[in-house]
C-alpha cells in the first residue's frame, strides 16, 4: 500500500513536471521576444529590459527552465503581467468559483445518474428504463456549451427565474447559489446520461453474477441485494469513470464560465490567453492539471478502499 502510494505520487510529480515543461516551451516556441509578446510592441526598451531580467529571459533556456521549475516548486508561479500581483493569489481568488461549479456539476449528475441507472437496471425494459435510455443518449449527444447557451436564454432571459451572469454578491450565499444553478446544470447534464448508462450496464452485468444469485438464495431482501451487494460492486468501474471524467468536466467548465461570465479559473485562462498574459495562463493550466491528477488519485484510492482485492494487490 505504501509503495503504491509512493509510486503514484512519483508518477503524479512526473506528470506535473512534464506539463511545466510543455507550458514553458509554449512560451518559447511562440516566435518573437517573450518580453515584447508579454508587454506589447509599444513597451519601452527599459520596461522590456526590466521584464527580461525579472523573468530571467537573458539567461540560457535551460537555466530559465530550472528557475521556472524551482519557483514553481516553491509555489511561485510568477506575476500577472498587468497587475504585477502573484499568479498564485490571482488564482486563489478565483479557484473557489471553479471548484464550486465543477463539484456541483458532477455532484448533481452523480446524485441523479447513479440512482437512475440502478432503477433502470433493476427493471430492464420497463418504461423508466426506456425513458432513461432515450434521455441518456440525448443528454450525452448535446455538447455542454450549447446546453449553457440554451439554459441562459431560456431560464434567465426568457423566464427570468435565475440570474444570467456573474457569480453573485460576495458574502450573499443565497445569491451565489442562485448563480451556480444554471452553469452547474449545464455542465452536469451530459454526465447524468452518461452515468445512468454506465451504472445500468455495470449493474446488469453484476446482477447476473453467481454471488447475486447466492444473496437471493439466502433470502436477502431485494433492496439489500441491489444496494448492498450489486451496487457495491457495480459502482467500482463508475468511480474510475467519474475520476477520469473530471478532465472533460474542467473543459466544460471553461465554456460555462465564459458564457455565464463566472470569474473562475477557466474564464481567467481564457482572458489571459487573449491578453497574452502568459504567467496567468501557465499558472491556470498548472492548477487545472494538478486538480485533475489529484482527483484521479483520489478515485483510485477510493477504489482501493472499497475493493479488498485491489487493496491487497497493492
Amino acid at each position: 500500500m505504501f509503495t503504491y502510494l509512493l509510486k503514484r505520487l512519483g508518477l503524479a510529480a512526473l506528470v506535473v513536471v512534464a506539463v511545466l515543461l510543455l507550458l514553458f516551451s509554449m512560451l518559447h516556441m511562440i516566435p518573437g521576444n517573450p518580453a515584447i509578446l508579454a508587454l506589447g510592441t509599444r513597451a519601452s526598451p527599459e520596461a522590456i529590459a526590466e521584464y527580461s531580467a525579472r523573468m530571467h529571459l537573458d539567461k540560457p533556456v535551460l537555466t530559465q527552465f530550472v528557475y521556472f521549475l524551482g519557483n514553481a516548486v516553491q509555489g511561485d508561479l510568477g506575476q500577472d503581467v498587468f497587475s504585477n500581483r502573484a499568479v498564485t493569489s490571482v488564482i486563489g481568488e478565483r479557484i473557489g468559483f471553479s471548484l464550486a461549479l465543477i463539484c456541483t456539476g458532477m455532484g448533481w449528475a452523480v446524485l441523479l445518474g447513479v440512482p437512475l441507472g440502478c432503477l433502470a437496471a433493476v427493471r430492464p425494459g420497463s418504461w423508466l428504463d426506456r425513458v432513461t435510455g432515450v434521455f441518456s443518449v440525448g443528454m450525452i449527444a448535446v455538447p455542454s456549451f450549447l446546453v449553457s447557451i440554451w439554459a441562459l436564454l431560456f431560464f434567465s432571459l426568457e423566464l427570468h427565474w435565475l440570474p444570467a451572469i456573474g457569480a453573485g454578491e460576495p458574502g450573499d450565499l443565497a445569491d451565489q447559489l442562485s448563480h451556480l444553478v444554471l452553469p452547474a446544470f449545464a455542465i452536469g447534464l451530459g454526465w447524468v446520461g452518461y452515468l445512468a448508462r454506465m451504472v445500468r450496464a455495470s449493474m446488469l452485468e453484476v446482477m447476473g453474477e453467481p454471488y447475486i444469485r447466492s444473496a437471493r438464495a439466502y433470502g436477502l431482501q431485494p433492496r439489500r441485494v441491489v444496494l448492498g451487494y450489486a451496487l457495491r460492486v457495480a459502482i467500482l468501474p463508475t468511480i474510475t469513470l467519474i475520476g477520469m471524467g473530471f478532465g472533460g468536466l474542467i473543459s466544460s467548465a471553461v465554456f460555462a464560465e465564459i458564457i455565464f461570465s463566472r470569474p473562475g479559473v477557466g474564464k481567467m485562462i481564457f482572458d489571459a490567453v487573449s491578453d497574452r498574459n502568459f504567467p496567468i495562463v501557465q499558472g491556470g493550466v498548472l492548477v487545472a492539471t494538478g486538480f485533475y491528477i489529484l482527483v484521479v488519485l483520489l478515485s483510485d484510492l477510493l477504489i482501493a478502499w472499497l475493493d479488498p482485492r485491489v487493496r491487497s494487490s497493492l
Binding site: 453474477e209 453467481p210 454471488y211 447475486i212 444469485r213 447466492s214 444473496a215 437471493r216 438464495a217 439466502y218 433470502g219 436477502l220 451487494y229 457495491r232 460492486v233 467500482l236 472499497l306 475493493d307 479488498p308 482485492r309
Partner: peptide, 20 residues
C-alpha cells in the same frame, strides 16, 4: 430461502461476493 432451505454453490470463487 436461507432460513428453511439453503444452498451450497458449485464454485465458491464466483458465488461469494468479493467486496464484503
Amino acid at each position: 430461502r436461507g432460513e428453511e432451505i439453503s444452498v451450497v454453490f458449485q464454485d465458491p470463487m464466483t458465488s461469494q461476493i468479493p467486496v464484503l
